[in-house]
Amino acid sequence: MLIDSRLRSVCDARTAPDPEKQELIDQFLASLGTKGMGDLLDGACTLIFMFMKWLRLAYEENDKDVIEHVVPNLVASMRMMPGSVSPEAIPTMAGLIIAAGTGLSPNLWRKQYGYWTDEELTALEVTVFLLAEHINRLADDRDFATRLITDALASAEGA
Rank of each mutant, 00 (worst) to 15 (best):
M1G: 15
L2D: 04
I3K: 09
L7V: 12
L7P: 05
L7R: 11
R8G: 04
C11A: 11
D12T: 06
T15W: 14
T15I: 13
T15A: 14
P17E: 10
D18A: 02
D18S: 03
L24N: 09
A30P: 06
S31W: 03
S31C: 04
K35L: 15
D39P: 10
D39H: 14
L41V: 09
A44W: 11
I48N: 04
I48K: 01
F51P: 04
F51C: 07
F51K: 10
L55I: 07
R56Y: 10
E60N: 11
E60V: 03
E61C: 09
E68G: 01
V70G: 00
V71M: 06
V71E: 13
L74G: 03
L74Q: 01
M80F: 06
M81Y: 02
P82Y: 00
G83W: 00
G83T: 02
G83F: 01
G83R: 02
S84G: 07
S84R: 14
E88A: 07
I90C: 08
P91N: 01
P91Y: 00
G95A: 02
I97L: 05
I98A: 06
I98W: 06
I98Y: 07
N107V: 11
W109M: 12
R110S: 02
R110K: 13
R110G: 02
K111W: 03
Q112K: 09
Y113S: 13
T117L: 05
L121H: 05
L121A: 06
L121N: 10
E125M: 06
E125V: 09
H134N: 09
L138Q: 12
D140E: 07
D140L: 07
F144H: 13
F144G: 01
T146S: 10
T146M: 06
I149A: 01
T150A: 04
A152W: 09
L153I: 10
L153R: 07
A154K: 13
S155D: 14
A156N: 11
A156D: 13
E157M: 12
A159G: 14
